[in-house]
Amino acid sequence: MDWSTLLSLAPSILASALRTATPIALAAYSGVLAERAGVVNIAIEGMMLMAAMVGDLAMLYTGSIWVGIFAGLLAAGVLALLHGALSITFKTDQIISGTAINIFAMGVTGFAYKRFLATPELSRPSPSTLQPIEIPLLKDIPVLGDVLFRNRPIVYAMLILTFVIWYALFKTPWGLRVRAVGEHPKAADTMGINVYRTRYISVFLSGLLAGLAGLWFSLEQVGHFDMLMTNGKGFIGLAAMIFGKWNPLGALAAALIFGLPEAVQINLAMSMPNVPYQFMSMIPYILTIIVLTGVVGRAVSPAADGTPYNKG
């Protein structure tokens, strides 16, 4: 393989990197919203899985991909409210609550898959996925057009949400309150801010983002649900959240770094038959461990992260 081949593949590699980074970034934003408000959400993986399954099921029975998307988001939102109730109202350990939801989601989606989605008598129409939208004019920009402006909807949604969430968190009254609640809930309470309500809203929004990340798998990428298809991307998303220092802009950069090795592997599998593909798949996980050991500067989590608030 020579450099000219590599160069000609670059746009294609970058485009796949953006694609594979999409669920990781959305999972990271999901984590950012919950943890900035002081609730640890390790149930993102489970919420993603649930949304992926429910989305496919709803699409199959109604024939509409948009109903599928709505149902998937709703399912993840309901799981998030369950996590909220357990960790905000009932003040259980948030890691335990998150783990329980992950296991629950694995079980339910596995069962539903076998019972409803993998039966031989089921005659599936050809897989239906969200189709790419090409943005006129912009799509013709060399390299950039291929990478940024010929994508499917959830990729665009992810890019737009990056800035929306960043703006909302750091430039608006709502964001100021969310951050205060995650850092020093008692201080927020004494200033008349409803700590519980603020946390519930953040956790619910966190669930919707996890849901969107899950729907990327079943409705945008593959076209149907497979068992455990989210493949740990929810956890990689949490690593991207830490790498990005609980800031959506940083989290996007981290998600792209984590997505790149997979993109390289997809595009160069043919050119590098001697490198087992597992090595490439390992890179995000190795990066995650390096990030977590604090090589990239110490990441400080919100001070009240994971601590239930007791009023009065």
């Binding site: 100021l176 309150r177 205060a180 850092e183 201080a187 004494t190 200033m191």
Partner: peptide, 15 residues
């Protein structure tokens, strides 16, 4: 009742 990682202005206007 101050949030240490926020600025004086952010703390003052909170709420």
């Amino acid at each position: 009742m101050l949030v240490p990682v926020m600025t004086v202005a952010e703390n003052v206007m909170l709420g």
